[in-house]
Each structure stands twice: as structure tokens, then as C-alpha cells.
Design a protein around this nucleic acid. Structure first.
Lengths: 110, 110
DNA sequence: CCGTATCCACCATGATACTG
DNA sequence: CAGTATCATGGTGGATACGG
């Protein structure tokens, strides 16, 4: 039994729910993880996510890398070929994203 | 099989993942829903969530009400007694919040 | 191809005080 | 008790241009 109530009660303690919000709440973050279901190159991701400004985009990638949700792999022989992929930590978020998407399709779309 | 890929590919179409971010990404939102697992009064919620400024707090409640994730119930006989509760739409988010909390406990906490 | 460097606007959030 | 009214602020994300 998960004692979620315990971890979130009291005032202002570090609660997992708010931690997750800080981690995933910023714009583009969830989309990025979702599209990294399979490894992708920078430009691929950019195209999939849509019109994002490159500064924000890179910042998001760096942050996710720092949090060890994604890994950056640069091919040493073709230096301009960079791929991003999910770590195990990041991959375990996918079923949850699926559940959120299912919820959205049930309640948000016609 | 959920065709999530379809709904998010292409550029900038309304994708469920980003819709959910807009809905739940703001501060306090997830905590609020989480604590409304059982019906709560305004001041109860305030105490549970922690130090929130009342303007933001009310704004969030109004937004969630407008999105039909929560319901506001004011007792007509004791006008200063207000309770908030989840709608079915909001309630179906709880298992997902649980999953997120479980993920956080596995990967975020020591 | 994969970014970095600036600069800027806006809006989300907060602080504080007050009220039906 | 359950909010509303103001005002301030900071940091998030965007536009644009440039670089290894």
C-alpha cells in the first residue's frame, strides 16, 4: 500500500506529486519524453514537437539529461549526428503518459 | 490499442499530452486533486497544500471547477460552509496520480 | 546539423490588506 | 470562513541571429 497521504500531508514537505510537477510540468517536456519512445535525433524531435524555439528546446533536453531521464549520444565518427534516448528511469514514465493520453481522449476530445 | 503516435505526430496539432500539460501543469493543481480524494473544505485544502497565496489558490479552484474536474458545493443553510469534491472526470485522474507518486518514490527519493 | 547568444515580453505566482 | 482587490516581480518561454 502506497502511503501517499503521509508523504503529502503536513505543510510544504517534499511531496512526490509536487516533485513530479517540477520535473515534468514545463512546456514540451512530456511531448519530448513521449516522442523518445524510440531514439530520435535532434532535428527529428524538433519536427515532431512542432514550432519550438531552439533555445528552449535545448534547455529542456539538457534538463532532462541532467535529471537522467534521457541520454544524449553523439557519434564520434560523424560528429554532427546526435541521438537522444530514454533512460530506464525515463522509460518507466511511458505507461503513465499513455494513461494520461487515454484519459485525455476519453474526457477532452469529442 | 491507443494510437497515441497518431494524435501527436504532425506539427502542432492538438495533442492529448500537451492538453494535459495545460490542464494540470500549473502549480498546486496536482496537489489539489490529490487531496480532494475525499471532499474537503476550502480551509482544509489550504492547510493540506501548505503556504499558498489565497488569490492563486482560488484561481486554481475556479479553473478546475470550470474544467469540470472538481465541484464546488455551498451549503445554503450555513452559507460559509463550502466543500469541494472531485467530479467523475477528476476522480479518474487519481490512479494516474498514484502511479506518478509511485514513480517518484522509486526514482526520486532515497 | 546541432546547437549558442542575446534580448524581451508576458503572465504566473506571490505579498499584503481587506470584506460579505 | 471563504474569499476579492491590488500591486509587484521574476523567470519561462519566445524571436532572431549567429557559430563549430
Amino acid at each position: 500500500m502506497l502511503s501517499i497521504a503521509n508523504t503529502t500531508s503536513g505543510a510544504g514537505g517534499a511531496c512526490p506529486v509536487s516533485a513530479v510537477t517540477r520535473l515534468l510540468g514545463s512546456r514540451w517536456t512530456m511531448q519530448l519524453i513521449h516522442h523518445l519512445r524510440q531514439p530520435r535525433r535532434y532535428s527529428e524531435l524538433q519536427a515532431l514537437v512542432g514550432e519550438v524555439n531552439p533555445a528552449t528546446f535545448t534547455q529542456r533536453l539538457r534538463f532532462l539529461e541532467q535529471q537522467e531521464l534521457i541520454m544524449r549520444h553523439e557519434d564520434p565518427e560523424h560528429a554532427r549526428h546526435v541521438e537522444y534516448a530514454l533512460t530506464p528511469k525515463g522509460r518507466e514514465l511511458l505507461p503513465i503518459l499513455d494513461a494520461l493520453a487515454a484519459w485525455a481522449q476519453k474526457w477532452l476530445l469529442v
